[in-house]
């Protein structure tokens, strides 16, 4: 990002600072807007089912709720091409390293939706010996969708929220 320089006494520097500002507003912002808009409606989720919430993702992708209307593509593709990971419920101790591995392989910018009580806090399984109490210890979460399981409408709401977040993303690189 172009940072407006500190204005000092020299006119030249003032000029540069001004040009930076002008460029920022004239090209940077529209460009960023354009790039974010492009990302917005073609979210490509990773096909990673972690537990029972995946049934509701299936229902949401089905013909009744059809999340493709909201710009989420079908969850079939290479990890490298994916930019969204919906963690569908419980993450167990066995799955946790794999989840991290999958997240690390995705290209920036990337977003995470934690779906279901399990992936937020452990949910019903708070006293289980094999369940992580929330996934935010291993990967950063953008949107939490509560419920056990969340209804398909709730998931759609979560995706719309995420799109709002992407629209307002301040930088081009995503981080």
């Amino acid at each position: 990002m172009v940072v407006a320089q500190q204005q000092k006494a020299g006119t030249f520097q003032v000029l540069v600072g001004k040009i930076d500002d002008v460029l920022q507003y004239a090209i940077g912002d529209p460009l960023r807007y354009l790039a974010n808009w492009g990302r917005l409606y073609s979210l490509w989720p990773v096909h990673l089912e972690t537990a029972c919430c995946s049934v509701e993702v299936g229902a949401a992708a089905g013909s009744r709720f059809d999340i493709e209307r909201f710009g989420t593509l079908e969850a079939f593709g290479s990890l490298r091409a994916c930019d969204l990971i919906i963690v569908m419920g419980t993450v167990t101790r066995k799955l946790a390293p794999r989840l991290k591995l999958i997240y690390d392989q995705m290209a920036e910018p990337k977003w995470v939706i934690a779906m279901g009580a399990c992936s937020i806090t452990g949910g019903l399984y708070f006293d289980s010996y094999n369940v992580l109490r929330g996934i935010d210890d291993i990967i950063p979460v953008d949107v939490y969708v509560p419920g056990c399981p969340p209804r398909a409408e709730a998931l759609i709401q979560g995706i719309v929220l995420l799109q709002e977040k992407i629209r307002r993303m301040p930088t081009l690189s995503g981080r």
Binding site: A51, T90, T92, K94, Y125, D127, S128, Y129, N130, V131
Partner: peptide, 14 residues
């Protein structure tokens, strides 16, 4: 298997 092993049987005892 075991990626979704959540220990239901142990939880049942609690």
């Amino acid at each position: 298997a075991g990626y979704v092993h959540r220990g239901e049987e142990k939880m049942g005892e609690y």
